[in-house]
Design a binder for these strands. Structure first.
Length: 805
DNA sequence: AGCACGCCGACT
DNA sequence: GTCGGCGTGCTC
């Protein structure tokens, strides 16, 4: 082979560089560079990281001069064919840069860190200038770290060629190495060596005894030192004598190692579980890339079904991927999986350090772990030969990434399923309407678990009409019936969980007399309060009207903006129940790493009587002594200017209700609401998902929202409002040419929080069923938006946005 | 993204 | 005159 070239995607996230660049492979590397490796390449004056995507054996006929790859960082590809193809698909699907898609699939440790230094090369400079440099005449050259003054002086030197700027790229990935000890002697040899020892060679004798004892076992030097009390020097001596061998071995930073986990046996399955397992196992064995919707009420044993099917995949000599929302990836959850599959399990979540994440990734990549449990980004775990992909709580919106690339792990999971010819199981008690509708149409196979494992009834749910109760409530946020229930439970030495629904805090107006919420006449969506313009605005269509002084429905003056904080409630509650220990769990108290788990542990140890928190307490926690769950304000999420508000409210209430009385004690749920008649609340009370599904589908159909229509959101932003608006209306005009009459455009409208960091935001939402031209148009739009060099004007496209406020 | 090049106003 | 402000275009 005489020459080789590589196509490289460079680490420059911009539209203009969103294409492969061709580099020559250095002679010494020819034949050893493959697609999916990380390389360092010269790019302009700089050196940057890149990913090889294609290897060419012929010099391409191009006019530009081809530079050489500077360094190859990996000996084997870090991204396989599946991942490379996935990256291309993802870039197109999410309108993202290829480089962002490649990076998102790897642990952060495998990204590059860039360093710039400047070296003085001339002696013809003033003393003052010399002072700026160190002994090697070098100094860090970073506009952010240096004062503007110094930076200017250094830049000038560079321009005058009196100093040279040096660009460095570092691979942050470092493996941890550990020394292990292996005995090279058998029992007879140990005896023989012992006889040869001098009488006073006590240390060496002890070492020989130890070597005799461990036999062929390999253990770390650290452990050996601990066990024998001998120093490292003695082991070195032993190595010199040829008794033992020391080796450097890669060590994984295992975050869960200390907790020795007992292995548990599979539980006996109920008939419905058994049937679900059979259906899924069949698909695993037959290598069908089918999607299942596993719909099971809280406590119906979905997790056990997951574990069985994982076992089936493993038995089939395949691997398994299980996705869980970050928030329910608790130690209990991890223990449950580890106790079944032991050290085969790798866990990926945001609580791990960069190094830990990298090590878990390496374990998976080397097939040392065959079961992966993780949050959103774990969907890219480098598993091969996947036999089953599970997504628990599939309706959770946290599966969608908020920043580039804005992928939905559900889409990626299904894509991987079809690549690996394996089933994907979407599990939920309250499936997203999209998934449930697909199950209806037979696109997904529908599996149901309607009974709870222990056969106990769902907790009794009581609705408190706050329109009535507020007049005589002991506190603004707590009604008398709820307070009584709390007192009763505390007397019985049982625990209480109170949830404050904080979503949509302070953004809408509601009548405290009748529960009326001002809605848009065109969109059937709550209007949002704008204090800057003193008006109510619809973020979908742009409709605007004055803030009402009296309730349009009941003429009451008690119409005002609605919202409340956990701190305030905690105070109120403490006043009403001075003797009670309350734990507060919200964004403020859980900001620190591990704080979340600590609070839950405290509550689990019964160090507190009441756990008061926001949404985050609704998921995954399972405390046997909690017999009362209270929802202080069911309405906030209901009145969000969002077509999913009813769905979210229903899901949240259903989920939180499931938290009560999971053990042998019967649970009680109290929901305070200003809208006791609303179908989402009524049906959550009855835990009737199916009926909710029917009504909500009807609403979506009438409003033309998903799952009947696809949606794509376009957002432009920039420092000049007129420019931003103009661009948006321009796009609106172009879209009208491209789209068929079936499609609907909402907007353009300014975003509710119009100005963040002096940037103005405008948005537009396209609702459509089938628009074959749309993707090409949007791609073009994105490309031109940067080429137009209307710089400072940013454009973002979000396919299937979670919400568009 | 960065970096260079180039065109303008406002300083030693 | 030149310094440095930012707009424009390019990076294999």
């Amino acid at each position: 082979m005489s020459e080789q070239f590589a196509e490289v995607i460079v680490d420059v996230p911009s539209m203009q560089t969103n294409q492969p660049y061709t580099y020559a492979i250095p002679t010494e590397w020819i034949g050893q560079v493959f697609p999916g490796m990380r390389v360092i390449v010269p790019f302009g004056k700089r050196k940057i990281l890149g990913f090889t995507t294609k290897i060419l054996s012929k010099r391409p006929g191009v006019s530009f001069k081809i530079k050489e790859i500077e360094e190859v960082l990996d000996l084997t590809p870090v991204l396989n064919t599946e991942m490379l193809e996935m990256a291309s698909w993802l870039a197109k699907w999410t309108f993202s840069f290829k480089i962002s898609c490649l990076q998102v699939m790897l642990p952060a440790a495998m990204r590059a860190s860039y360093n710039k230094t400047i070296k003085l090369t001339s002696t013809d400079v003033s003393e003052e200038v010399k002072q700026l440099f160190d002994e090697q005449n070098e100094v860090k050259f970073d506009s952010k770290e240096l004062s503007a003054d110094v930076f200017k002086k250094l830049s000038k030197l560079s321009r005058e060629k009196k100093a040279e700027v040096i660009y460095q790229v570092h691979d942050r990935a470092r493996t941890k190495k550990v020394t292990v000890i292996k005995s090279l002697l058998n029992t007879q040899e140990v005896q023989k060596q012992k006889e040869l020892l001098r009488v006073n060679a006590d240390k060496l004798r002890l070492l020989l005894d130890f070597l005799g004892k461990i036999g062929s076992q390999i253990l770390t030097q650290k452990d050996a030192i601990k066990k024998t009390g001998l120093s490292a020097a003695v082991f070195t001596q032993g190595e010199k004598k040829g008794w033992l061998k020391k080796e450097k071995v890669e060590k994984y930073r295992d975050p869960y190692r200390d907790a020795e986990i007992k292995r548990t046996k599979p539980k006996q399955l109920k008939a419905a579980q058994q049937k679900a397992v059979e259906r899924i196992d069949h698909s695993i064995v037959q290598q069908q890339d089918k999607v299942f919707l596993l719909q099971g009420v809280t406590g119906s044993g979905k997790t056990e079904v997951y574990l069985y099917t994982i076992a089936c995949a493993l038995k089939n000599k395949q691997t398994a991927l299980m996705l869980v929302p970050e928030i329910s990836l608790t130690p209990q959850m991890v223990r449950r999986v580890k106790s079944r599959f032991g050290s085969n399990v790798a866990v990926l979540h945001s609580g791990l350090s960069e190094g830990e994440k990298y090590d878990e990734w390496r374990r998976i990549e080397r097939n040392d772990a065959t079961v992966v449990v993780g949050a959103r980004s774990a969907v890219f775990a480098p598993l091969e030969n996947i036999g089953i992909i599970i997504m628990d709580e599939e309706h959770e919106t946290s599966y969608k990434q908020e920043d580039m690339p804005e992928y939905n792990a559900r889409d990626v999971a299904i894509k991987r399923g079809s690549w690996h010819h394996c089933p994907v199981v979407l599990g939920s008690a309250t499936p997203s309407l999209e998934s449930r509708a697909r199950a209806q149409k037979g696109v997904y196979e529908w599996l149901r678990l309607d009974e709870r494992i222990n056969g106990q009834p769902l907790p009794e749910v009581q609705l408190i009409d706050m329109r009535q109760e507020l007049k005589r409530a002991p506190a603004v946020d707590i009604s008398t019936p709820l307070l009584d229930a709390i007192k009763q439970r505390l007397e019985q030495k049982e625990q209480v969980v109170l949830m404050l629904n904080r979503r949509g805090y302070s953004s809408f107006i509601m009548c405290r007399e009748c529960g009326f919420v001002l809605k848009c006449p065109n969109c059937d969506i709550s209007l949002t309060l704008h204090m800057d313009s003193h008006s109510m605005k619809c973020h979908y269509c742009g409709h605007e009207e004055p803030i009402p002084r009296t309730c349009p429905s009941c003429q009451s003056k008690k119409i005002r903006y609605y919202g409340t904080g956990t701190e305030k409630v905690e105070q109120e509650l403490q006043q009403l129940l001075p003797e009670t220990k309350i734990l507060r769990m919200d964004v403020d108290t859980t900001r620190r790493k591990g704080a979340h788990a600590k609070l839950l542990r405290q509550f689990g140890n019964k160090e507190a009587d009441i756990l008061l928190g926001t949404q985050m307490i609704a998921k995954g926690l399972d405390f046997p002594d909690v017999t009362l769950v209270g929802v202080l304000n069911a309405d906030t999420s209901l009145s969000l200017p969002n077509f999913r508000s009813a769905e979210r409210t229903f899901q949240l209430l259903t989920q939180v209700s499931g938290r009560a009385g999971r053990a042998d004690k019967l649970g009680q749920v109290v929901i305070q609401t200003f809208n006791p008649k609303h179908y989402a609340i009524q049906l959550a009370k009855k835990q009737n998902y199916e009926k909710f599904f029917g009504i909500e589908m009807n609403m979506r159909h009438r409003g033309g929202y998903p799952p009947y229509f696809f949606t794509t959101q376009i957002v432009t932003s920039g420092p000049n409002e007129a420019d931003v608006a103009k661009k948006m209306f321009e796009i609106d005009g172009q879209l009208k040419q491209v789209l068929s009459s079936q499609a609907v455009i909402l907007g353009p409208t300014p975003k509710p929080i119009m100005r963040i960091n002096n940037q103005f935001y405008y948005q537009l939402v396209i609702k459509y069923k089938k628009e074959p031209e749309l993707d090409a148009f949007l791609e073009d739009l994105l490309l031109n938006s940067q080429k137009e060099a209307r710089q400072k004007l940013k454009l973002k496209i979000d396919r299937d946005p979670i919400d568009f406020i």
